[in-house]
Nucleic acid binder design. Structure first.
Lengths: 232, 232
DNA sequence: CAGCCAAAAATTTGATCATATTCTGCCGCC
DNA sequence: GGCGGCAGAATATGATCAAATTTTTGGCTG
């Protein structure tokens, strides 16, 4: 079941509308694997656990459905989609293409401030890997990529990349939960080095490899599990 | 203003929920340029013109916003987005990548029935071009690509491609409305020929060129108009 | 006296909620 | 094992409240 946690209008949210807060909350839960693949999501469950009305919750769910983060099961049921092997290969194909381009653009527009922030995030990521902090790893890894996207200044590409993260987020959590963070590939060091050298294509190449390796590893783990019904 | 037209529960829709009908209606209006770039869209306007309640309309709008087909203007106004030169180049990049891959997959899974249907759609497209029927051209062209996607059997790639169509639909309509259908490139003939020859990479190449030429032509026209405020 | 800026009321639109209605799935009964 | 009712959840509506834009009006200045 979804744990009860009221929406807190934290300082950053200021006066965001409720449906936006619900959306952000749900999105983070999916992205960082707090909802397992296949788990059912009900409107009433969310109105209760989030303390919001039905209309905002409905809107948030529709939005996430349209982003592929939630799936409509035909008979008005909604659940977190289970990524198939075939789905994952499609995701891999697009991610490699889009994220390489985003990296290219980011490399051309990089500022010293942003580069420094990237180094910091990468350090946090390393620490999460060492201590085996799965949640921290997922967040740092996403933040690293997200920051790069924001530097790239390409809203349409960024939005599409974000959408893909939502698709494999839940499965990534499952994979990490099962096998730990130790052998996850991390090409961020190479990326940062190429960044400092001003090697645009090098950054793009490193990104493509980072994506490919991470995704292929996921594909390997998922293929072992395909068809099984156990979670975590 | 948006013209008044009640939702008709046509035979195909059968028992679709209202919010789905509203979504489909609005989507088609945007995709085929019945709403101009920059045009404002209000909830109350749609509840009146479509004869639906607020909740379904709200959901449909949220969904389309999340697809990039509608834009939130900050002060809770919603409008059809105006495609900038920069946006368009991002769209071009992804379309080339995704649609080439879709064409590749479609070529491998093509059936005689589907190939025949494609020929028919291409013929309809040619006729629309000859008679200068802009609406017919837009529809046939979309149908041609959509059929190819469905053959490719790659839901995630297809969904992303569809999303991109929604982004440039309104602008494409403007371009066609201004310059007619005569000099629009059309690589469909090459694509069909390669398809019959079983030349998978040839199909992908033809698709990439079809996309590139169509999009670049749009970019050229848009660049002339950039900054102006006149419509149509 | 006319024109203009600004402030405030009024209207329009969006956000949220409570409620009614419809549909789905399940359970018990025949 | 099939059929009908029952419970629960989703869909849809209208009412209500809040925000923003537009209009009006009053005062000031040239």
């Amino acid at each position: 079941m979804i744990k009860k946690q009221a929406l807190k209008p934290s300082q950053t949210d200021a006066k965001q509308p409720v449906h936006e807060q619900v959306y952000q909350t749900l999105r983070a839960m999916i992205l960082f694997g707090e909802l397992a693949p296949g788990q059912a999501v009900t409107i009433q469950g969310l109105t209760d656990s989030l303390g919001a009305g039905m209309t905002p919750v409905r809107e948030a769910i529709r939005r996430l459905m349209s982003e592929g983060a939630l799936m409509f099961q035909g008979n008005r049921r909604v659940s977190v989609p289970v990524l198939t092997q075939d789905d994952l290969h499609q995701v891999i194909f697009i991610r490699k293409s889009i994220e390489a381009e985003l990296a290219r653009r980011a490399a051309q527009k990089m500022t010293p401030t942003a580069a420094e922030a990237l180094e910091k995030l990468d350090a946090a990521l390393d620490q999460a890997i060492e201590t085996g902090d799965v949640g921290g790893y997922l967040r740092s890894n996403y933040d690293f990529h997200a920051l790069l996207y924001s530097v790239a200044d390409a809203p349409i590409l960024t939005e599409m990349a974000d959408r893909l993260w939502l698709r494999f987020g839940p499965s990534l959590r499952v994979v990490c939960g099962r096998f730990g963070t130790q052998n996850l590939p991390d090409r961020h060091k190479e990326m940062l080095k190429a960044l400092h050298a001003g090697d645009v294509e090098g950054v793009a190449r490193a990104m493509e490899q980072d994506v490919e390796q991470g995704m292929e590893q996921m594909a390997g783990v998922l293929s072992e599990n395909e068809g099984r019904h156990d979670s975590i």
